[in-house]
């Protein structure tokens, strides 16, 4: 192997510092959430304890955290499934040029770049004026989709731009119906990317704040609950909550990544031998 240039070491250190910048604060509150019972929001640590986690798990005075967690979880799954289905379907549509496809694309981009508070405000106003109650599972759900769908669609674009159409042609030549082509050829091939779309759908919904703000009604989702806590909770219990939900996110991410990895392994093993002589 070639000797590494001097610039490598400079850039590698820069990357290391960037990682520290990215993860350092999170690790800090991770540590501080084990603060002793008399400790405060900053160092020094007054001993180590699970006190703040205990306080978090006991039904406490700070609000309905577990209700919010359950709602966020359920909403996350709803958004995840809707994001996968709608993005794949739209991704398939965009492979052909249809009348209005350009406009639809730009509207989707608008959905991505529009300030989130506008979606919140607009949806809230509409629901109020037609006399519907805003609720996380209706208005909140739809508002979050305006954030997750553009990401889903962009991933689908990236997938289909690299998609080898000869597989489909082969299936069609063998007499597969359009439906069969999608079900037995297209979807299996793009499956690992679908897991990526699902991961985005779930985590973006689970962490969404601004678009849920005026559209969730009287029952808060977890980010709204956490934000409420920042104004009136002054103990490390908020760090304990932060550590808890970050760990939860990391576990979810880990599960999705493992799934992709296992799928890849299985494919390698059980893959077709087409094209390999002998």
């Amino acid at each position: 192997m070639e000797k590494r240039p001097g610039s490598f070491y400079v850039l590698a250190s820069f990357f290391g510092l960037f990682m520290l910048f990215l993860y350092g604060p999170t690790l800090t509150i991770g540590l501080l959430s084990f603060q002793g019972p008399h400790g405060g929001l900053t160092f020094p640590m007054q001993g180590m304890s699970f006190n703040w986690f205990r306080e978090l798990f006991e039904q406490q005075a700070v609000g309905d955290i577990w209700g919010a967690f359950r709602r966020s979880l359920l909403l996350g799954f709803m958004v995840m499934i809707a994001t996968v289905v709608v993005s794949v379907s739209a991704g398939l549509a965009f492979r052909k040029r249809f009348k209005g496809s350009g406009i639809l694309f730009y509207v989707t981009i608008t959905s991505l770049v529009i300030p989130s508070i506008l979606v919140s405000l607009g949806v809230g106003l509409i629901f109020n004026q037609i006399g519907f109650k805003v609720h996380w599972a209706t208005s909140g759900f739809g508002s979050q989709l305006t954030w997750t769908l553009p990401f889903g669609l962009l991933i689908m674009f990236a997938v289909f731009n690299r998609f080898d159409k000869s597989f489909e042609e082969a299936a069609r030549d063998q007499g597969a119906s359009p439906r069969q082509v999608i079900q037995h050829v297209v979807v299996p091939i793009i499956a690992p990317s679908l897991i990526g779309v699902a991961l985005f759908g779930f985590t973006l919904s689970y962490d969404e704040f601004a678009r849920s703000l005026l559209t969730s009604g009287s029952y808060n989702t977890l980010p709204l609950e956490i934000f409420g806590m920042t104004t009136n909770v002054t103990t490390p219990v908020i760090y304990a909550l932060g550590t808890f939900t970050t760990l939860f996110s990391l576990i979810i991410i880990g599960v999705f990544l493992m799934t992709v990895w296992i799928m890849g392994k299985r494919r390698q093993r059980a893959g077709s031998d087409a094209g390999k002589a002998t």
Binding site: A93, K99, L121, T146
Partner: peptide
Amino acid sequence: TSNIIAYLQAAPLMAVLATFLIAPIFMI
């Protein structure tokens, strides 16, 4: 037909964006 299929496939996306993006902008 292929145009119709494309519209059907894009319809869910159009519906979500119409309801939760375009309509709210008009409302604002």
